[in-house]
Amino acid sequence: MAEDPYKILGVAKEASAEDIRKAYRKLAKKHHPDLNPGNKAAEEQFKAVSAANELLSDTEKRARYDHGEIDESGAEKAPPRGYRHYAEGAPGQRYSYSSGPEGFGGAAGFGGEENFEDIFSTIFQNRAGGTQAARGRDAHYVLAAEFLDAINGGAKRLTLPDGQVLDVKIPAGTEDGDTLRLRGRGTPGRNNGPAGDALIEIKVMPHKFYKRDGQDIRFELPVSVQEAVLGGKVTVPTPAGAVAMTIKPHSDSGVELRLRGRGVPAQGSRAAGDLYVKLRVVIGPVDVKLEEFLREWKPETAFDPRREMEGDSKG
């Protein structure tokens, strides 16, 4: 027998002992071999029903089956290996505390990762006598930054495990993975040694529509059919605020316009990047007039938008 005994008896997993007894009686009567002489299928069914009842009518067996300790035939199942077996071995890296996403010690929290190198340098320094001045260890943190804060610069507050608060200034143009160093904000030194530094890795969160590409920023700008065909002035949201942009008549979906210097602002020797605006024509709500116009409209030049796809697919 390999089927779910609850299914065989046609009862819910939460069924009471009484429900099970009733269901069994009903089915047993129906399939009883004496009532179905020579009916092989009924005999099999009767066996299955009896076995299912035997398992489910025994409170202890039923509980063990529900917990997956025994299978449908009542045979012991090998208990699955516990989580620890995997977590302590190499596979456990998958759920490593410091590699976790937001809320698990990764971004937005702090993955105060202390590796053995750090532990040992402390141990060996302790051995070395203890009166020597020693610099404190560097502390590592991960901080999540909004996309626009990373582009334009911003400030973010980081609360350390010991309750200390660090106000972290995120410089304009910060890239995902950049590490900021706050001097002297790491572990205190010993015997008047200098404190270590706080190393803060910035994790830049993705933006709803902007995508960063080096110093440039790209995004898609929805435009109406009129704007695309007739051209016109539209307002473009740039990371530094809205600017007006002129769309040339006959601009199609996919046309990319460049707003020079409107990408990531200049920092030090790096010049400001550009903002690439890719047009996406949106038809929007259609009214009767538009339908009528299109029905009547005979283009001067025949146009097949799928011409380039020809021969690239079957059929």
Partner: peptide, 8 residues
């Protein structure tokens, strides 16, 4: 996760 990290 921290505990298993440490044990690993």
């Amino acid at each position: 996760d921290q505990l298993y990290d440490l044990r690993r």
